[in-house]
Computed example of a mutant assay.
Amino acid sequence: MPFVNIRVLEGHSQKRKNEISRRVTEAISEIAELPMDAIWVVIEDVAASDWFVAGKPVGEPKG
């Protein structure tokens, strides 16, 4: 059973997360030839202060 863990910055709507989950599930189901109910998707919200790019939190002002 595939388990997909997706981490996103906080602030995405539930509607958007539902759509991401639906599309990921459909793609894996089609490619792996598995029933959709065998695919688990977890979406984790991460605070901008806990997400780093180039050693700096993405929530930090640039400059």
Rank of each mutant, 00 (worst) to 15 (best):
M1H: 09
P2R: 02
P2H: 00
F3E: 04
N5P: 04
N5M: 09
I6H: 05
I6P: 02
I6S: 02
R7S: 08
R7C: 10
V8G: 02
L9K: 00
L9V: 05
E10W: 08
E10A: 10
E10T: 14
H12E: 08
H12Q: 12
H12C: 12
H12A: 07
S13L: 05
S13V: 03
Q14P: 09
Q14T: 10
Q14M: 09
Q14F: 10
K15A: 10
N18H: 15
N18F: 12
E19R: 13
E19S: 07
E19G: 04
E19W: 01
S21T: 09
R22F: 06
R22S: 12
R22I: 00
R22Q: 11
R23C: 15
R23M: 12
R23D: 15
R23H: 13
V24Y: 01
V24T: 08
T25Y: 00
T25K: 08
T25D: 02
E26V: 00
A27E: 15
A27I: 11
I28K: 02
I28S: 04
I28Y: 03
S29I: 03
E30R: 14
I31Y: 07
A32Q: 07
E33Q: 08
E33W: 05
L34S: 11
P35D: 11
P35T: 05
P35F: 06
M36I: 04
M36S: 15
D37S: 12
A38M: 09
A38E: 07
I39F: 05
W40G: 11
W40F: 13
V41I: 13
V41C: 05
V41F: 03
V42W: 15
V42D: 15
I43M: 05
I43A: 03
E44I: 14
D45P: 07
D45G: 04
D45K: 07
A47V: 11
A47E: 13
A47P: 14
A48W: 01
A48S: 12
A48V: 04
A48F: 00
S49M: 10
S49C: 08
S49A: 15
S49N: 08
D50E: 12
W51N: 03
W51S: 10
F52C: 09
F52P: 03
A54V: 13
A54R: 15
G55N: 06
G55L: 13
G55E: 00
G55Q: 01
G55H: 05
K56S: 11
P57S: 07
P57I: 10
P57V: 08
V58H: 01
V58Q: 04
V58R: 02
G59E: 04
G59H: 03
E60M: 15
E60G: 00
P61L: 02
P61W: 02
P61Q: 07
P61C: 03
K62T: 14
K62P: 00
G63S: 05
